[in-house]
Design a protein around this nucleic acid. Structure first.
Length: 718
DNA sequence: AGCACGCCGACT
DNA sequence: GTCGGCGTGCTC
């Protein structure tokens, strides 16, 4: 009797592969286990997703599984079900998602070291080698190096052919590096945090929060999948979260809490750790390998009752998962747009369905799509405001000259006189968004991307914000020889110049990527501001995401209004949310907030300034309904990128035609040049699709995409 | 992804 | 003439 296994690999291939299971491995082979299997000429680590007796369709001769790598399998069937759905939803690779879900200790694939064999050494010494072979042999003469290093040193694009040839000739060999020994400091670390364990779980509950928690608890108790949306202020939401977490804990269940970015939720996490001690586990990208490993073990052993982390924590191996909370649901960081593409909110839904757990999305300013769904499908729970939202004054820039309005300037003067601090946000790096020749209008552009180079005056260079290309700033226009003066839309460096000019006595600091490339300098600027040694702190988006902003009493927000002109149906939502975040971050201590804009009447700016989410939502949803944008339809953007535009266009046309023939339920727009028509030297073409229902879109895409041979990340919006 | 095959330009 | 560049296709 033959037994077969279906295996997926961490490759950008959305297929399973069938293998025979040799008799010796049958007992150990279970769904969810990692396996070693021959794949082409190499051997890869994959994941068993199915074991069965019927011979699957496939090539006439199936290969054998070589080894089973873990005995209790690494993934539960429920976990597999959830990741499968998620990968299908985003048209990304199942195996890559599973790879992303492995703990750091085994996820780190051992790096192969390349070294010379004795024969290789001899040949090199005898001087019989030439060209690339000679260069490689000389490099490896006294030391073995990793593949990436060799590639960089040889300045080669692809060394696989070279390596294969030399391995065949017996000149070099590759050997796996010893895997990391998973040494952790788990025990000592646990003792350190044990202090908080016995603290009573005391929560101050507003009546509104109490009522909200009650409604969600009713759903939670059913021990089945349920979905709730909690709209309320941060303290109210937190109170509800803790109440639910406590209930789940009491029933022996566990909670997974996803947050946008650790630094934005530092306070929440602090209180969680304080209240739960060692029963809380925290994951984030700043942790060292060892710290991650320790937290991972705590989660896997079941010791942690609550796990907090960013989008990657979606895959944490939480057992008896009863509740999944996504806080600040509207935040863009829940979407991972590279490698395995996924949306952690959607992922939370899939995982909760598979685990029969409850999902709670929370926000004060929800994303339009989820809020609409929550309201129309009856899973919205609103905490009636116990704390009023932040408010701001709007200044119309139409009659102003320079970057600072008279009103903001006046307010700054006032704070300086009172020795109070000021924060000013301008979300544009550098001195200006581009250089423009005053005579012939020539604009220096990046050679590899379809975008103007930003001008950085302080470092006197031009920078591409897509690919990082930089070059010394041009003095004269290469086309007509005229001298460059200034540029286009001013950035934070220009703001700094103006502020210093207008307030020569003020102590000014600028927090942006260029100056603060090194972390030390960043913390130094923040420290100084915190100690009151800086009067006016200027910064970009980067500053918004810092913890420990100084206690300013005045916040200026200079809006880059170009954002609202973008051909993106989410532009208004982005503007609203960006403003709200800056208002909240800067105005945490009741500071006065002034928003400067050229579009004072745009509803996203007006309502953000008033802190009136419902008013913003009503206008935005009207617009979406009128133009048939999500959530009233499902949009998909399919990107084609490559070196040759003609070939791309051809592939995109074929794809578009296939969708058209597949049925009339999907509207096709394009192919057209993508908004960023060239990126890192690759041309980009996009096709946009619109369907009434997400299911239709997924069905058609899953049917059509495998037949198109181009790299094709897909973004679904519904 | 990685590896092989196959087809064109510039060097011993 | 070949070496080595990249485009194309496949991996159970």
């Amino acid at each position: 009797m033959n037994v077969y296994a279906e295996v997926v690999f961490p490759l950008p291939v959305s297929r399973t592969f069938s293998y025979r299971l040799p008799a010796a491995l049958r007992d150990k082979a279970r769904v969810g286990a990692r396996v070693a299997a021959p794949f082409g000429r190499r051997q890869l680590t994959g994941f068993i997703v199915h074991v069965g007796l019927t011979r699957p369709a496939g090539p006439s001769e199936l290969k054998d599984i070589v080894d089973i790598l873990d005995d209790p399998p690494h993934f539960t069937p429920r976990f597999l079900a959830f990741t499968r759905l998620l990968s299908r939803y985003h048209y990304s690779s199942w195996g890559e998602l599973l790879q992303a879900a492995l703990p750091p200790s085994i996820a780190a694939r051992p790096q192969a070291l390349i070294s010379l064999t004795a024969a290789g050494r001899q040949s090199a010494a005898a001087g019989v080698l030439a060209g690339a072979e000679k260069a490689l042999a000389e490099l490896l003469m006294d030391k073995a190096y990793s593949r990436v290093y060799v590639k960089r040193r040889l300045k080669a694009k692809d060394i696989s052919a070279l390596l294969a040839r030399m391995v065949n000739k017996g000149l070099v060999e590759t050997r796996d590096r010893a895997p990391r020994t998973g040494k952790t400091r788990t025990d000592t670390e646990e003792k350190k945090v044990r202090g908080g364990r016995q603290l009573p779980l005391d929560f101050s509950f507003s009546p509104g929060a109490q009522a909200a928690a009650g409604k969600i608890l009713d759903r939670l108790r059913q021990q089945a999948f349920s979905l709730s949306f909690l709209q309320g202020s941060a303290p109210d939401r937190e109170a509800v979260y803790f109440r639910l977490i406590r209930t789940v804990m009491a029933g022996g269940g566990r909670t997974l809490l996803l947050v946008p970015e650790i630094s934005l939720s530092a306070a929440l996490i602090g209180r969680l750790e304080q209240k739960l001690g060692e029963r809380a586990a925290v994951l984030h990208s700043r942790q060292t390998e060892n710290q991650k490993e320790a937290e991972w073990r705590k989660i896997q052993s079941g010791k942690a009752a609550v796990v907090v982390g960013p989008r990657s924590a979606l895959f944490a191996p939480v057992r008896d998962l009863r509740l999944m909370i996504v806080d600040e649901e509207q935040d863009g960081s829940f979407i991972q747009s590279e490698n395995p593409v996924f949306d952690a909110r959607q992922g939370a839904l899939f995982r909760a369905k598979a685990e029969k757990a409850a999902v709670l999305l929370g926000s004060a300013t929800p994303s339009v799509g989820w809020f609409h769904r929550a309201r129309s499908e009856g899973f919205l729970v609103t905490v009636e405001g116990s704390s009023p939202p932040a408010k701001a004054r709007v200044v119309d820039m139409a009659r102003e000259r320079g970057l600072l309005s008279r009103e903001l300037e006046e307010a700054i003067r006032d704070r300086l006189a009172r020795r109070e601090q000021v924060l000013v946000f301008l979300n544009r790096k550098g001195y200006s968004s581009a250089l423009v020749c005053p005579r012939c209008r020539y604009i220096p552009k990046c050679a590899r991307c379809d975008i103007a180079l930003t001008y950085h005056k302080r470092e006197d260079k031009l920078l591409c914000r897509y690919c990082g290309y930089e070059t010394p700033a041009l003095v004269r226009c290469p086309r007509c020889g005229e001298k460059f003066r200034g540029g286009r839309e001013p950035g934070v460096e220009a703001l700094e110049e103006e502020v210093r000019r207008k307030f020569p006595a003020g102590r000014v600091a600028c927090f942006d990527t260029e100056v603060t490339a090194r972390r030390r300098e960043r913390t130094k600027v923040l420290d100084e501001a915190g100690q009151g040694r800086i009067d006016i702190l200027l910064g970009t988006q980067l500053l918004v995401h810092q913890t420990g902003l100084p206690p300013a009493t005045l916040v200026g927000i200079l809006t880059p209004d170009a954002l609202l002109g973008l051909a993106d149906y989410r532009a208004a939502q982005k503007a609203y949310q960006g403003l709200t975040l800056m208002m909240r971050r800067g105005g945490e201590n009741g500071a006065e907030v002034i928003i400067q804009t050229a579009l004072p009447d745009h509803y996203s700016i007006r309502e953000a300034a008033r802190g009136d989410y419902p008013a913003f939502f009503e206008q935005e949803i009207k617009f979406r309904r009128l133009l048939d944008y999500p959530p009233f339809s499902c949009l998909a953007e399919v990107f084609f990128s490559g070196g040759d535009l003609r070939r791309l266009a051809a592939a995109a046309r074929i794809f578009a035609n296939q969708i058209k023939t597949a049925g009339k339920s999907i509207r096709v727009y394009g192919p057209a040049l993508a908004p960023v028509a060239m990126l890192r030297g690759l041309r980009r073409v996009q096709v946009t699709l619109r369907a009434r229902r997400t299911e239709t879109m997924m069905k058609v895409l899953n049917h059509t995409l495998p037949e198109v041979r181009v790299k094709k990340p897909v973004f679904l919006f519904d």
